[in-house]
Design a protein around this nucleic acid. Structure first.
Length: 681
DNA sequence: TTTAGGG
DNA sequence: CCCTAAA
């Protein structure tokens, strides 16, 4: 996986690795200087380092930082709001508490790029023009962000726009520094242009895009005009006289302003145009290289749809320096389905856990309030245009696949809506459950699980048959369980086939109700595991059976074959559970009557029959791994034990051997008993 | 990547 | 359950 990287600009944005890991976000985070041509990254531990370092040489004086995630291929993806919230806790430097931009209204609904983690650098105030623009940065940020989003319906996403601030990326890419120098090439112009600042006529603090009429070519505007445009865009005055800065701020601001994105304007090559005219403008400029004077990147070609692909390409091809621009793209997630689908294929694949947890949130949310759009929309990330829509992808099984739209990594991604399998308290009444099992369990849960089980039933069935077949042979696989079950009246009438059948059928999808997922509260001050999922009896039985069939130690086998549908149980989990089971079974030996788990009733009490079985398996395996002679002996004791329904009795002070490595002869489908007979005789 | 074992 | 060493 990826290392968490200590990012340090001038402030230390160091992420603590340990905590991070427990969140299981398979990404690293990067604080990246994104303002202007200045960026300075003191340390980084990520593949992107090289490119970053290259940048570093050319760049100085970070001003605004954005939180970015380092993707697997080195791409830097702007963090989603959620990620930021997570990472916030990891920031070690309290002084650089991520300023959460004031967002007075519908909080996270319209997340904007600039809202991520923008930090001004208070220490490196540049000289000259930058000095005057610094105040603007902060003010503008808040202004833009506070602006309400006019609901103008969907429009096409703005094209990729690179503004001055983003210039270094493309420039570094092309190793054309001369071009870049042009950015600050005209300090005279910036400082001396005597454009009287527009009088501060009661700024509305709201952008008025209506003032942006027709096509505006920022390059042609005077400082004064630029200031006017600035006001139109941001709803406030500016006194900055630096043309470049103005242009940059305007384009940047507009590009990332969801307000603006809802207008009919788009920005291209420093030209604000109306939607319709954009095509023309676009065509005309389509041959311009990625590095115009202003570092305008890649006007590319191919119409609106193609643009998105190209954008993605850019990001993928040139991850490092392109951070800024790709960061800015986070907000302009594609908006219509088709574009989404095109983009999705290039988008970062969300992690399983991400999918699960998001799904869970949404399922909980939507079950709480049925189809409450407002609620749901709170979980759209990055852009208000992102949709959570149940799409029915008709599959061969005709089972509806619910997907949702997500903007993970800044691009629209279709994420399957998986049902989060229960991560919750165990059932307090497991016995009824066990009793019900042969009768077919509760149909409701089964239906629920099957409704979401996209992984496909057919596989389950196949596996099921397989397991049934392998276990149908009259072997020890069944007998101990039967024996054990007969100990208990509940099991008396139960046919083993039924039990196993049921076990397999139920899988782990049996449970999926409430969720204690990330719950960590604890009275004793201690924190419970963040991702704790109690083992159900079913799972335990499956595990036991798995060990019986494949042998202890072959956890990955068991996981693959018996826990295929339980994505949350890793082979390590199985091993751990088995270890616990062993412990439990031996500890419980002395007073093993019924199911008296006197203490620690907190977790699911393991039924005595199962524990017996565990013990037995352990015993057996231990013996099997001994030696040939031992096998002979074991064979006796084993059969004997089975006949007696009670294997060798060990005490906690006299535990049985616990070798868990298993001779391969156990893993065959044949009954180990008969097999042993063959081997021995 | 899987397994074993400690925490 | 998490982490890591070792294979």
């Amino acid at each position: 996986m990826y290392m968490i990287c200590g990012i340090s600009l001038n402030k230390r944005l160091t992420l603590r690795r340990g905590v991070y890991k427990s969140y299981e976000i398979s990404v690293a985070y990067y604080a990246f200087a994104m303002e202007a041509n200045e960026a300075k990254i003191e340390e980084s531990v990520v593949p992107v380092t090289n490119t970053i370092r290259a940048l570093e040489k050319e760049i100085a004086d970070p001003i605004v930082y954005q939180l970015v995630r380092v993707d697997g291929d080195g791409r830097l993806v702007p963090a989603t709001q959620d990620e930021i919230m997570v990472v916030e806790d990891f920031l070690e430097d309290d002084k650089c508490e991520p300023k959460h931009v004031p967002d007075t209204r519908h909080t996270s609904e319209s997340v904007k790029t600039e809202g991520y983690l923008l930090e001004r650098n208070p220490f490196q105030v540049p000289e000259g023009k930058l000095e005057s623009e610094n105040p603007e940065v902060g003010a503008e940020k808040s202004n833009v962000l506070v602006d309400p989003v006019p609901d103008l319906g969907k429009i096409e996403a703005p094209e990729k726009v690179a503004v001055h601030g983003l210039a270094p990326c493309s420039e570094v890419r092309n190793i054309d520094l001369s071009v870049r120098n042009e950015v600050g090439s005209n300090p005279q112009d910036a400082l001396n242009e005597d454009a009287p600042s527009t009088s501060a006529t009661g700024s509305s603090l709201k952008p008025d895009f209506s003032k942006l009429e027709g096509k505006i070519c920022l390059d042609n505007l005077t400082v004064k005009e630029l200031q006017g445009t600035f006001k139109a865009a941001f709803g406030r005055e500016t006194y900055v006289k630096d043309k470049q800065w103005l242009k940059r701020r305007i384009t940047m601001g507009l590009t990332n302003s969801c307000d603006f994105s809802c207008t009919t304007f788009i920005i291209r090559d420093n030209v604000v145009v109306k939607k319709g005219e954009e095509q023309i403008c676009h065509r005309v400029k389509s041959r311009i290289s990625a590095d115009s004077e202003d570092g305008v990147a890649n006007p590319d070609s191919g119409g609106s749809l193609g643009d998105h692909d190209n954008i993605i390409n850019d990001d993928a091809d040139f991850s490092g320096p392109d951070v800024s621009s790709s960061a800015f793209e986070s907000c302009k997630v594609t908006k219509d389905l088709y574009t989404e689908q095109r983009t999705a294929k290039r988008a970062r694949k969300p992690t399983k856990r991400y999918i699960e947890e998001l799904s869970e949130i949404e399922s909980r949310e939507s079950s709480e309030k049925l189809s409450s759009p407002d609620k749901i929309s709170r979980y759209r990330f990055a852009c208000p245009e992102t949709h959570m829509r149940p799409t029915k992808n008709v599959r061969s099984t005709a089972r509806p696949l619910v997907t949702r739209q997500d903007s993970l990594g800044g691009s629209g991604v279709q994420i399957p809506f998986v049902s989060r399998i229960r991560r919750s308290r165990p059932r307090e009444n497991f016995m009824p459950l066990l009793k019900l099992q042969p009768c077919g369990m509760d149909m409701s849960t089964r239906q629920v699980s099957s409704a979401f089980d996209v992984s496909g039933r057919q596989e389950d069935d196949k596996r099921n048959n397989d397991l049934i077949n392998t276990s149908s042979s009259p072997g020890w696989t069944q007998q101990p369980l039967i024996a054990a079950c007969e100990e208990d009246d509940h099991y008396s009438g139960m046919k083993i086939a039924e039990l196993e059948n049921d076990i397999e059928l139920n899988d782990c999808t049996e449970d999926n109700s409430d969720d204690n997922v990330v719950t960590v509260p604890t009275q004793k001050g201690g924190m419970r595991r963040k991702h704790h999922r109690p083992w159900t009896i079913n799972e335990v039985v499956k595990l036991v059976e798995g060990v019986a069939r494949y042998g202890a130690g072959r956890w990955s086998e068991i996981k693959r074959l018996a826990f295929a549908s339980c994505s949350y149980r890793t082979s390590v989990d199985l091993k751990d559970k088995w270890r616990n089971l062993l412990k439990a079974s031996f500890v419980q030996l002395p007073a093993e009557k019924g199911i008296l788990n006197s203490r620690k009733q907190a977790s699911v009490p393991i039924p005595a029959p199962i524990l017996s079985r565990v013990r037995e398996l352990a015993d057996m395996q231990a013996k099997i791994t001994s030696s040939y002679d031992d096998i002979c002996i074991m064979h006796k004791t084993q059969t004997q034990a089975i006949r007696q329904q009670e294997p060798t009795s060990y005490t906690s002070s006299n535990p049985p051997p616990r070798r868990t490595t298993v001779v391969h002869l156990l893993s065959s489908s044949r009954s180990p008993e008969s097999r042993l007979s063959c081997e021995i005789n």
